[in-house]
Design a protein around this nucleic acid. Structure first.
Lengths: 328, 328
DNA sequence: TTGTAGGCGTTATCAG
DNA sequence: CTGATAACGCCTACAA
């Protein structure tokens, strides 16, 4: 690859050890030779081979992150924040995408270890014991994003239960007497529960049940039809729909508006995720802000602490906030 | 770091060379010892050290990409596509973000080279001759995204000129008699022109000028006020606004709707970029689809061809399309 | 079929 | 202050 210390040594007429001393100020060296070496290094455009360095140091100052994809704003926002934190400590961030493929996720994690990543930030879709064991054997620290998948892993996430609990109470305070919670399927194709949405649902049911209001939960891909049907045949008062994701909420606005239902006169709507997009659009969506940037930042922070040998809590919960828009 | 070939050699009672032969099928080896070695390798969870391998091979099967950030959907979409292509040839993609910081961009590029990236995909903000020289000295191939910054670099982009030209004609066909082109500043703070937007503007002016319609260009951060002012005092007919970016178009819809202007009865609107978001929302935005996924895919494809020593064209232009929505 | 030796570019240790 | 020498984990001759 380009110029090496060996080349420099030959050209400057000194040993490789002296070159190192000049470049990194370790040990003592004559000011004159140092200057000479630095000058020629600069002139020849010497760039250290970070791989070779990592090989001998056992550290790479590289942090790996493996997430599903960048399709909606969730991970892009989070990664921007992770990036900010890693940059502060001059780590390089290596992002890769598993595209919802479990084997690919494992491959990527192994590759990251193979490239000597000092630590990993993961959005893992594998949830079985084998995978947990694999993580444990990695030999480097890792932080899981979102919610607690494994008891013994470090996690940064939001308290989904509390979040929906809060959300329901916010809706009730606005005077609504019936609430429909809209969630995607609670189980993946392979029957493993989607912990996040399941927690949200529990929070919803507990809060709604406790209040004595009328409530129901709506699952499935045809939720738009279900929701329309609800409006036409089941609603007793002006209902509020609480969508477990801003994207669903966006689709509902669209669909309902086409069917002549006006917001917030005919129904109320609350989202979840606070995807910036819907915040710039009118009507501005009332939603649960789960502070993805903060999550990313804290995850990176936690990981760096672990890499550098500092004590960290095992779990960090990011508190959520309700962002009031014009849809309730 | 975990188990090495050295460990395996010791445990299996053979030399390191034999281990390599067993693992990668080079040279001949007794079936029995091979099986034995593979079994213990699996049992002990041997993972090759990719850095060490890269060091000796001079190739890393890693492609680096340096882009500004992941804030809007432009780069996330493109990166998803890049990722798809790199995965097809089993390269690992290393994404990093320069956050609009010129020095950081250089640092990251150097770091990628330091990590033995086999090639780079860049969204570069540095545009001076020094930077071009630096790129030339990298020793690895690279592809620039967007538009042709440097004559001698390989580029994948869209023909911005033709795109706006097409856009204008589309607007005219809809019967509009006056068109306002809305662009961000054409020069960066340091006085270097933003080539993409400049090309778009030229395309706009040429097409509009040729048609003999009434037209003007609107710059600056206060474009919303300028646009409102135009509506109130200057418009002679129902004008069409052609925004050099869907985001601007989104903001215009919002602002105009608050001021009582209805779409498309009071004005027409055309965007640029085809950010999916606006495509799911109503009114669906009529916009120029510059096919960012295709751009990403082609860029990765071109780079891989270069890495693997195949001939490639120096420039690839992705054709644009007009996506008809409900705003014209 | 297998083992030995050398090198990739770096850093660390120990002599000189 | 400086120079050998060894090591990190891997691969590729070449020799046995």
């Amino acid at each position: 690859m380009g110029v090496t210390t060996k080349d420099l040594a030959r050209i400057c007429g000194v040993s490789r050890a002296t070159i190192t001393r000049a470049l990194y100020g370790t040990g003592s060296i004559k000011e004159e030779t140092k200057r000479m070496i630095l000058d020629t290094a600069k002139e020849l455009g010497y760039q250290p081979d970070l791989m070779a360095r990592s090989l001998v140091m056992g550290k790479s100052r590289m942090i790996g992150t493996v997430v599903v994809d960048l399709r909606n704003q969730y991970f892009p926002k989070m990664i921007d924040a992770i990036e900010k934190r890693t940059k502060e400590s001059s780590y390089m961030l290596n992002i890769s995408l598993h595209e919802d493929d479990k084997e690919e996720e494992k491959r990527l994690i192994r590759a990251m270890v193979g490239y000597h990543a000092d630590g990993l930030i993961l959005n893992c879709i594998n949830k079985d014991a084998d995978f947990e064991k694999m993580l444990g054997q990695l030999g480097i620290p890792y932080v899981i994003l979102g919610y607690r998948v494994f008891k013994n892993s470090h996690t940064v996430g939001v308290d989904e239960y509390e979040a929906t609990y809060k959300g329901v109470n916010f809706i009730l305070e606005k005077g609504y007497k019936e609430i429909i919670f809209v969630v995607p399927p609670l189980y993946d194709e392979d029957g493993i529960p989607n912990i996040g949405h399941a927690d949200r649902k529990r929070g919803f049911e507990d809060a709604a049940g406790k209040s004595g209001c009328r409530y129901t939960v709506m699952y499935g891909d045809d939720y738009l039809e279900q929701a329309l049907d609800y409006m036409r045949t089941k609603a007793e008062s002006r209902p509020a729909f609480f969508c477990s994701g801003d994207t669903f909420a966006g689709e509902m606005i669209n669909c309902f508006s086409k069917n002549g239902y006006r917001l917030p006169d005919d129904y109320g709507l609350m989202g979840y995720d606070c995807v910036s997009f819907y915040q710039n659009f009118s009507p501005k969506l009332t939603t649960v802000d789960n502070h993805v940037e903060q999550m990313g930042y804290e995850a990176a922070n936690m990981l760096i602490d672990m890499i550098e040998g500092r004590d960290v809590p095992q779990n960090i919960k990011i508190p959520v906030d309700i962002v009031e828009g014009q849809t309730l």
